[in-house]
Amino acid sequence: MEPFTTLEGVAASLPQDDVDTDQILPTPWLRDPKADLAKGLFGYLRRVPADKTESDFVLEQPAFRQARILVCGSNFGCGSSREHAVWAVKAFGIRCLIAASFADIFRENCLRNGVLAIRLPAEEIEGLHRAVQSVKGGAPFVVNLEEKRIRCPDGRAIAFDISDHEREALMLGLDDIGLTERHVSDIEQWENTSRRSLPFLQDFRIAPFNTSNKPSQ
């Protein structure tokens, strides 16, 4: 995983609450294994309305096409667990999401893909949206993970919280499976113990179709 240290770039504002993963990466891009996920990000929201010549959606506006940071509302990423939603965010070039809250699975998916998902208290999020909207993509914001600080173009700094472990994992680009593999002997021991105490947990068999259970007709 690509380490995350400091990110400097354009920030865009999407203040809507409860943005679900069907909006973040709609089904047509999910269905196609070769789809360009960068194009699929917010695919429907980016469309040009019938009565207009260009899309109103923030990431379609020239100033925000290069956005690296997206400031969101609350409960961002709810709904389907599709990790493609995070892949699409990343494919577009966004490495940092800032929201009042994230859906549980979506935030996990971010962590495991090196996307920094920052939670800020609701009042601070409001302030940040205002800052982002007034800068209009004209100057970069800086997210410093080591210092746990967001620096706005006007010099103002916003501190954020993240657990030391998550911060370390992102900064070093740690391999999550590797962390667990250090505990292989614990896993083996658990398997051996449970074979004795609750045998049915480890004793599982499902017959393959073509041997024992051909349909009767």
Partner: peptide
């Protein structure tokens, strides 16, 4: 446990899930 694709890979490789107790 509902999981994403990376977590799915994690369970395939290790047969455990790494999670903070909710």
């Amino acid at each position: 446990f509902a999981c994403g694709t990376s977590e799915l890979e994690h369970v395939l490789a290790t047969q455990v899930i790494a999670i903070h107790k909710p």
